[in-house]
Write a protein that binds this DNA or RNA. Structure first.
Lengths: 355, 355
DNA sequence: CTTGTCACCGAAAGCGCTTTCGGAATAGCG
DNA sequence: CGCTATTCCGAAAGCGCTTTCGGTGACAAG
């Protein structure tokens, strides 16, 4: 079971170590004959190069890191698992390694990243959930170190990213609600240092404008990105003298909280008050009522992120790697025509479930 | 910004490289005076040893791997994120690295693991979701390579693991249902190659026995570990001539499917039919109705796994590291007294919500 | 003053690979 | 057949660290 080293292999073949190395690495100055011989012996003896030694000699890390988002929101982020899986797939093609690194705290975030970059342990980094202006991105951009972001910061012009166009998703959501007759649409959101929150808020505003509705600051409420947060924010909105008839939520988790708030108000979500979420989390369909949402396609985002990062490490221009995907509405039971007392009005505006 | 190497530092100090190295690594044969000098110079120049070179020289990987479970179930496993975070915390104390590796397919699982172990990239492995008899564990056990398992295989005597006692959790769940008057308790489960499924089924059986109830094979239904799976299995159970009055589900995801099945049958979950899940996933409280479940304490499982693995790598005996935690019932609205037509019976047996 | 004993450090040999450089053998050319 | 151009491989120098080994100087003991 003892590992066979390059030296062993060379001795076994009666050639120099360098020759074996070059043969295995497809150098042009090795004859086909010996290359074949070396290859044969290599997998006969089960030779596997020592990655550490290789890394030291070449100076290449053959690994990338996923930089964990600091969990400001208590919700454990289930998307991480999928993302890692995709990244792993992408890296597997070169048999590179995937490191997971996380800062001890939000304050040490930058320091951790700096250390990581200068450690030489990895040749690229992927970041998640950028802040509106994100120190990590600034640092990486300046340093010239290869990286890619899952999401976008406010200024996303000159680096690589993969994102879902949540802004236009929210525009469509507003359109949809307006088409159902809603005039007072609330936005339950979160602090906007996370850029995706800002994006969605922008979409909300644009949507209102496009439909000739005024933007009323008292219709947007801010809370944590949790179910309780969504519930609280929604409850506040609904407690106003002239409450909204529909709630657009920054994500599904909050939307599910919103449903609870509506019920707590003695109203029926999907009837008296519509709610639309964003994300397309699995649980949405089991909410009460099943949640209408803007679902983001994130099946292969990890894979795509990985491929892009590899291309950048290979020398590609980061600006050439910016992908924006569209979300898609999956309509369930939490939205409906604006509520009026006369029941016949409801028959005018249809509802359907497609999934 | 150029990295300063040990050589640079040595030259700067006018001493030999070896001296610097030993000083920094607290060798006893270095005087306090020069040790201090070296340390000072080191962090003045911002010296950070090159981990790759260090690994090569010492032969120690200073890293462990989390071996991803192959996703047989489509549900992305949200616990992975938490677990990685905990592992990362544990490793951070030594500033070791955390690798995530995944096999390309279930078939290549063993081969991937074998390669990982022999690559020298890591000095320990953590596994998740063992099968009843798990080839990965057998291999690792034989090889003597340090590892720890999140969960247990059937025979868990001679290796390290961290698990939740789901068997006794299911016993308690049965007890609970019996106390509510249920006599026909269904088990909605999954194929038992995953050992935790077997454990829970065992708990179910033991619970029945303890309560003097017969084990009826037609009351257990097997399906995938998804919501649809749970729904299908539950629907089948409820379609029997003499259907169960309560459903015990192997996990919360299936339980949520069970709720849907009950509603599809025109019945009210928590009233006509009780259901209890297992896991304590966050979404349970927003199910319709809120799900009663056996919640497992997994807050720091990653951390504990990491610490244990490190101890084993340090030479500890794996058998000394076996931790079994207890799950705890969190009662919500999906369970209740067995349904009978006379309403007064229900008042006898109480219900409450504590969370 | 000599010898032995430590405390301390320099020198050097790796760790297992890559990669440059130069030289021997062969081929191509007139 | 002599000379240059190729082809192919061996030798050796790293990569940046660790660790053993041996040696120097100081100091105590005799």
């Amino acid at each position: 079971m003892a590992r066979v080293s390059l030296k062993d292999l060379a001795r076994h073949l009666g050639v120099a170590e360098g020759t074996v190395s070059r043969a295995l690495n497809n150098y042009p100055d090795i004859s086909e004959a010996t290359r074949a011989k070396v290859r044969a012996a290599a997998d006969e003896l089960g030779y596997r190069p020592n990655p550490t030694a290789r890394r030291l000699a070449t100076g290449k890390a053959e690994a990338v890191a996923y930089f964990m988002p600091t969990s400001r929101s208590a919700i454990s982020t289930p998307f991480v698992s999928q993302l890692l899986q995709g990244l792993g797939d992408a890296l597997a093609k070169r048999s590179w390694d995937l490191l997971v690194v996380q800062p001890n705290s939000a304050e040490e975030e930058l320091e951790t990243l700096r250390k990581l970059v200068s450690s030489g342990k990895v040749s690229g980094v992927v970041l998640s959930r950028p802040a509106k202006v994100d120190a990590r991105i600034d640092f990486l951009r300046k340093s010239g170190f290869p990286f890619i972001v899952h999401g976008r910061a406010k200024d996303a012009s000159d680096y690589a990213w993969f994102d879902i166009d949540s802004e236009s998703a929210f525009v469509s959501a507003v359109d949809h609600l307006c088409a159902l007759g809603h005039q007072r649409i609330g936005f339950v959101g979160a602090p906007t240092y996370q850029n995706f929150v800002q994006d969605r808020l922008n979409g909300y505003k644009k949507g209102l404008q496009a439909n000739g509705l005024p933007y009323a600051p008292d219709l947007v409420s801010v809370a944590e990105l949790t179910d309780e947060g969504g519930e609280r924010a929604s409850f506040d909105l609904l407690s106003q003298p002239n409450p909204p008839t529909a709630l657009l939520c920054v994500n599904d988790v909050q939307a599910i909280g919103a449903l609870a708030a509506i019920r707590a108000k003695g109203l029926t979500p999907g009837k008296e008050v519509s709610v639309i979420g964003y994300d397309g989390i699995w649980m949405g369909r089991h909410a009460n009522p099943p949640l209408t949402t803007m679902a983001q396609p994130q099946a292969h985002s990890g894979r795509e992120l990985g491929d892009m990062l590899l291309s950048i490490i290979d020398g590609g221009n980061p600006k050439d790697f910016q992908i924006l995907r569209q979300a898609e509405m999956v309509r369930r039971k939490s939205d409906g025509p604006v509520w009026v007392e006369q029941p016949h009005v409801q028959k005018i505006l249809g509802r359907n479930e497609h999934e």
